[in-house]
Design a protein around this nucleic acid. Structure first.
Lengths: 416, 416
DNA sequence: GTTATATTGTTAAACAACTTGACAAATTAA
DNA sequence: TTAATTTGTCAAGTTGTTTAACAATATAAC
């Protein structure tokens, strides 16, 4: 409400307004007219006309066909002009890397995902990322020069200004490695480095389950568990970029040991590894489950448990329900602290759907303040595995479009 | 970083900049010069001169004596002009109400605190608040007309726009009662209604332990336990005003029953009531403690435990250490989720100091992500019992000063 | 079909608030 | 004294808005 220390220099006013108009055009489903822009931006129609003319002249925006209304002159719908250039979103996970290429209108061009091991350290990983990008581009017959900006997500806390991860729990060898600088040199275009869960939140907010939601939390359940927070429509990083690290919340003081040295962390109860271990133990104890068909027992993975649960395997369903209930306790804490409008659960395990989500919802209903519990909707990610990479696309587009809008060249370095 | 949908209308630019300048003058300890303002606001010196001239003309700001520097013309220090008008901050707690009256420079004029029972409901409570205010004012020889704005804090989630509490856990009878409207009619001046923990955060940020800290959490430990969050220098309310409600975080699934129906909530382990009960039980079990001098046993309060601990009573120290350790688990969760620069612990129990704070720090060090734990400082409130009421003063001053800066009359209704 | 009505989008003049660059003011150091 | 340095002011120029009138384009009514 009261914002201390906000200020504006009039030089920037036009750029700020251009960005605002551009973002409203980008993120309003079905486009938006000048009058609606004027309304949403609290500016006069004349001012919007002038701003839009700038955007039309530089061909960032184009006019679509008019939409007919009840009476009066039909509004001209504005939309992003998808020219031949494009951007890319890279999501580096613990075990997979995926790349999405999209045009300026955020229309999906091509996607590719391959196995990956982030523990190999920055040099081999970044070189693998480069190979995959070149691979995708060649398949889509796009040259690297046409890619004007690239968003990158990694599973660690980011020092945004520095473009590196600092003290990451699960990225051995990456601490303070200059990721952004390396990639910008490699690809010759601006790179935005972000936390993968934050990108997931952004992706779901822009094109997924949480379109336009003010306060959104995205929970990424995979090998690790992390949350991305969108507060008042902005990514919230925290003091050192490690906001939303819910994986090591204490859920049960007397629970199983966690890799971090404490007992009963969320990750030790609900993480992919924990689910797999619980299943292996169940088989070992001779419980009746179709998982016992998998040999050796050590190969049973969280995916297998999810698959078995979907086929009606009771033991698997029980394991997932308990995991969901533990996750629910953590989310209940998040809801009490952060009071979001929506929690989007993404990542591998979340694909299972209500079987996993229902215990989460129950725990939140029970353990959160009624007002907060009532206000929050809990859903699965609409973009599925693509939440984070689409978030990376959003960031890349933000760079590319806003540079264009300010009349700057986007690409800094020509690729040799 | 990327702020979507931000926009500026040039009409407001001047007012925005006036507010920004005013806030920098208000909250910079020791005042600030025009050049420094220009630097912090990213404006030219000429623009700042013009803005400051406006503020000088309306007598909101005045020039203090120059500060001598190494070489060059010494800067003229600007400060808020404390004229004869004033504002008030009201903190309604569960068991006490306190009122602070301050001039425009936020200089303390008078304070008063009396017992209070918020459970009596809005009408008697607000009338009692009125009595106390008139009492304080008459003692300071100030007329109600001289009070230009009043900030009010209550221990419940606030719907800011509506000026009421919604579904409060500990304010029976207050749900959706039009608090702000009632008070504005009663006092004839603008009233700002806020959550008490949020005000505590604001107070400590403005004049206390957390001056200028970007991401600050204030923990109020009293009858209930609540947190106020200041993110990027702004109060964070959440979707329904119930952000920071950490009192019912689950700390121990198998812990003691809580009034909310769940087990092992923070409040059931660390709240004033919980501390008192544990002490009573210790005495009942015949433990050696000076608390046993208090009869009947049921009269032992958290304050007594704190007093005994300070006098070296071992049992009391143990009880408080355990409470601190449980609070530490909750704060560790908060630190993992919000990654603040500072956590300020306030409220009655916190006055004990390190005896209580050290276990908190230890728990946070153990249970938070190293990067986050390293970034956060944990301290007691510098303003002591006055954190919230000074936060209320900040809000009142924001209203009064900003109205003045915009050339509006502050008082809306003349008092009959 | 024409006319009335409603709404969107554009244009030109007026206005507000900034920047730039030159200059005045006030101090310390040489 | 003079030079150097920094703060603060002034006038001209620039930018980006608002206002208010007007043009454009549809539906609905007659």
């Amino acid at each position: 409400m009261t914002q201390y220390f906000g200020y504006t220099s009039p030089q920037n006013v036009r750029n700020l307004n251009k960005h605002a108009a551009l973002d409203l055009i980008r993120f309003t489903a079905g486009g938006i007219s000048r009058v609606e822009l004027a309304h949403r931006m609290a500016l006069s129609r004349a001012a919007v006309t002038s701003i839009v003319n700038d955007l039309l002249e530089t061909e960032i925006v184009r006019e679509a066909e008019s939409r007919s209304v009840n009476s009066g002159r039909p509004p001209i719908i504005l939309e992003i002009n998808p020219n031949n250039d494009c951007v890319a979103g890279v999501d580096m996970g613990a075990t997979h890397i995926s790349i999405v290429v999209a045009n300026y209108a955020a229309n999906f061009i091509l996607e590719k995902e391959i196995p990956f091991n982030i523990a190999l350290g920055p040099k081999p990983c970044l070189s693998q990322a480069n190979d995959l990008l070149l691979d995708v581009l060649s398949e889509a017959s796009i040259s690297l020069e046409q890619v004007k900006a690239i968003g990158v997500g990694v599973p660690g806390p980011i020092a945004s200004d520095a473009g590196m991860v600092v003290a990451p729990p699960i990225m051995p060898g990456w601490d303070r490695f200059p990721i952004r600088a390396t990639l910008e040199k490699m690809w010759g275009c601006p790179v935005s480095l972000n936390n993968d869960a934050e990108l997931g939140a952004l992706g779901e907010w822009a094109y997924g389950a949480g379109r336009g939601v003010r306060n959104l939390a995205y929970i990424k359940v995979g090998t690790g568990i992390g949350a991305g927070l969108l507060l008042d429509g902005q990514i919230y990083h925290g003091a050192t970029g490690s906001a939303g690290e819910i994986g090591h919340l204490t859920i049960d003081e007397n629970g199983p040991m966690c890799t971090c040295g404490n007992r009963g962390c969320l990750e030790a109860l609900t993480g992919g590894q924990a689910i797999a271990s619980q299943a292996q133990e169940a088989v070992h104890n001779g419980k009746r489950t179709i998982l016992s068909e998998i040999v050796p027992v050590e190969r049973i993975s969280a995916q297998d448990v999810a698959g078995a649960a979907r086929q009606g395997d009771l033991i698997s369903q029980q394991i997932l329900a308990r995991a969901g209930s533990h996750l629910g306790i953590a989310i209940a804490g998040l809801v009490n602290i952060f009071n979001p409008n929506m929690v989007v659960v993404g990542g591998g395990v979340a694909q299972i759907g209500d079987l996993f989500l229902e215990p989460v919802r129950q725990a939140v209903q029970r353990r959160s303040l009624p007002a907060a519990a009532h206000a929050v909707r809990i859903t699965t990610a609409l973009l599925g595995r693509r939440s984070s990479s689409m978030g990376a696309v959003v960031q890349a587009l933000t760079i590319a479009l806003h540079h264009l809008a300010e009349g700057k060249e986007v690409r800094k370095v020509p690729v040799t």
